[in-house]
Computed example of a mutant assay.
Amino acid sequence: MVSYQLLNNDFSTNTEKFKEFYRYRKSVFYYSAIIIVLIFLSINFLSYNPEDEELSSSSEHNYGEHPRNIIAEQESGQKLPFTTTPSPPLIPYKYDELPPCDLTTDSPKPLHNAEAIVNEFFKCASMILLRFSMNPQGMLFNWPYTIYVCDEEDLTSGIPLRSFDNGQKQYWAVLPNCQEKTTLVTLGANENTKSEEELKDLLKDFATIGTDPFHERINAYEKFNQVALSTDNNKLLMTDSNDKYADKNYVATINQHTFFNETVGVKKIDMLWINPNAGNFEYEKYLNKDGEFEKMGVKVCQVNIEITKNDAEKWSKLITPLVQEKRFIFMRPMATEGGELTRTYLLNVADPECVRKYLQ
Results as ranks from 00 to 15, higher is better:
residue 303 V to A: 02
residue 303 V to D: 04
residue 303 V to M: 02
residue 303 V to L: 08
residue 303 V to T: 04
residue 304 N to M: 10
residue 304 N to Q: 11
residue 304 N to P: 09
residue 305 I to K: 01
residue 305 I to S: 02
residue 306 E to I: 13
residue 306 E to W: 08
residue 306 E to G: 08
residue 307 I to Q: 03
residue 307 I to K: 01
residue 307 I to A: 02
residue 308 T to E: 08
residue 308 T to K: 03
residue 309 K to T: 10
residue 309 K to S: 10
residue 309 K to I: 10
residue 310 N to T: 06
residue 310 N to E: 06
residue 311 D to A: 09
residue 311 D to F: 03
residue 312 A to C: 00
residue 313 E to A: 15
residue 313 E to Q: 15
residue 313 E to I: 15
residue 313 E to N: 15
residue 314 K to L: 12
residue 314 K to H: 11
residue 314 K to A: 11
residue 314 K to E: 11
residue 315 W to V: 11
residue 316 S to V: 00
residue 316 S to I: 03
residue 316 S to H: 05
residue 317 K to W: 13
residue 317 K to T: 12
residue 317 K to I: 13
residue 317 K to A: 13
residue 318 L to G: 06
residue 318 L to Q: 01
residue 318 L to S: 04
residue 319 I to W: 01
residue 319 I to M: 00
residue 319 I to S: 00
residue 320 T to W: 04
residue 321 P to D: 01
residue 322 L to H: 03
residue 322 L to G: 03
residue 323 V to T: 08
residue 323 V to E: 04
residue 323 V to A: 03
residue 324 Q to Y: 12
residue 324 Q to S: 14
residue 324 Q to C: 12
residue 324 Q to L: 15
residue 325 E to Y: 06
residue 325 E to R: 09
residue 326 K to W: 04
residue 326 K to P: 05
residue 327 R to K: 10
residue 327 R to A: 01
residue 328 F to V: 12
residue 328 F to Q: 06
residue 329 I to G: 06
residue 329 I to V: 14
residue 330 F to C: 05
residue 330 F to G: 02
residue 330 F to V: 06
residue 330 F to R: 07
residue 331 M to L: 15
residue 331 M to F: 07
residue 332 R to Y: 08
residue 333 P to R: 02
residue 333 P to Y: 03
residue 333 P to C: 04
residue 334 M to T: 09
residue 335 A to G: 10
residue 335 A to K: 01
residue 336 T to Q: 07
residue 336 T to I: 08
residue 336 T to H: 06
residue 337 E to N: 15
residue 337 E to V: 15
residue 337 E to K: 14
residue 337 E to L: 15
residue 338 G to K: 02
residue 338 G to N: 00
residue 339 G to P: 05
residue 340 E to V: 14
residue 340 E to I: 13
residue 340 E to N: 14
residue 341 L to T: 05
residue 342 T to I: 01
residue 342 T to L: 02
residue 343 R to P: 03
residue 344 T to W: 10
residue 345 Y to W: 13
residue 345 Y to P: 09
residue 345 Y to L: 12
residue 346 L to W: 08
residue 346 L to C: 13
residue 346 L to I: 12
residue 346 L to M: 13
residue 347 L to E: 06
